[in-house]
């Protein structure tokens, strides 16, 4: 029995020593940040929705702008960089139209559910476009809910050269054909063959990106909006547009032909700085 006792004692000792052999793993020490990040992007909201109600603008479900009327815009808001969900809600009541009581959301990606990618240091203009009654596409499982839509473009806010202003043009009037925008009585256009919600024209290597600002001399301009060609019929005159030196502007065609003011075909201007 003495031998047995010895054996059992050593066995228990082995057990004890083995379980104390449990070692931690040796993963490296992380280097986490210790404060919230300071990287930001900037976004300017413009409500170009035809007959749109007043909208509250949200980024990542936080209100960044309220009561934005149709055809007006808010100054740039600064927001944490990375990925941002862009959402618009009616300031009171519902948006109505095809969206009904749903919110307006920015959608991207193959399944149209992705949020907006916004790297640090960039600037964007987010337009609300289209009519409230734009129908929802009828294919089964379509993810475009119809109604108002976001249209987001990037802005290069580099200061214009001395004596110059920067200007660009977007066609955001649903139902209107492609337009050519030039100075009154000019035979050439500054902005050629702009189609509804188009962001660029041409194929590589000859691509014209519409978000690029065109430098023009500072001054007061009368613009004519033609259809069919640079010398085609004028559908809209936009007189007395002041373009100050050092400022950056976006002019956009708004409204729907045939509707009463202020929702008829017209133009509006955004000053970015």
């Amino acid at each position: 029995m003495k031998n047995t006792a010895k054996i059992l004692f050593f066995a228990l000792l082995a057990l004890a020593s083995m379980s104390s052999c449990t070692r931690d793993t040796e993963y490296p020490d992380p280097a986490p940040a210790n404060e919230a990040s300071s990287l930001r992007f900037k976004m300017l909201f413009c409500n170009a929705g035809v007959a749109s109600p007043n909208l509250n603008m949200l980024l990542n479900n936080e209100v960044v702008g309220s009561n934005l009327e149709a055809y007006s815009y808010l100054p740039y808001v600064s927001f944490p960089a990375g990925i941002a969900q862009i959402r618009a809600k009616a300031a009171s009541g519902t948006i109505g139209g095809t969206l009904g009581s749903n919110d307006l959301l920015f959608r991207a990606g193959a399944t149209n559910n992705n949020n907006f990618t916004a790297p640090s240091g960039r600037n964007y203009t987010a337009f609300v476009t289209d009519t409230l009654q734009r129908p929802k596409p009828t294919t089964i499982g379509a993810t475009d809910p119809g109604g108002l839509r976001f249209f987001v473009v990037e802005d290069n806010l580099a200061t214009p050269a001395a004596g110059k202003a920067h200007v660009r043009f977007y066609h955001l009037a649903p139902g209107a054909p492609a337009v050519w925008v030039g100075l009154k009585d000019s035979t050439t256009a500054i902005f050629n063959d702009r189609r509804y919600r188009a962001t660029s024209q041409g194929t590589a290597p000859n691509v014209v990106n519409f978000n690029v600002f065109v430098p023009v001399n500072a001054g007061i301009y009368d613009f004519d909006v033609h259809t069919t060609s640079a010398t085609g019929p004028v559908v809209l005159s936009v007189p007395n547009v002041t373009l100050e030196e050092g400022k950056i502007y976006t002019i956009y065609a708004k409204g729907k032909p045939g509707l009463a003011e202020p929702n008829g075909l017209g133009a509006a201007i955004i000053q970015h700085n």
């Binding site: 404060e35 990542n60 936080e62 959402r87 992705n114």
Partner: peptide, 16 residues
């Protein structure tokens, strides 16, 4: 402070 969280997709109604 150690993690940046954003809504999952366009339908997510949560704030960070």
């Amino acid at each position: 402070n150690e993690i940046i969280l954003v809504p999952t997709d366009a339908r997510d109604t949560r704030t960070p």
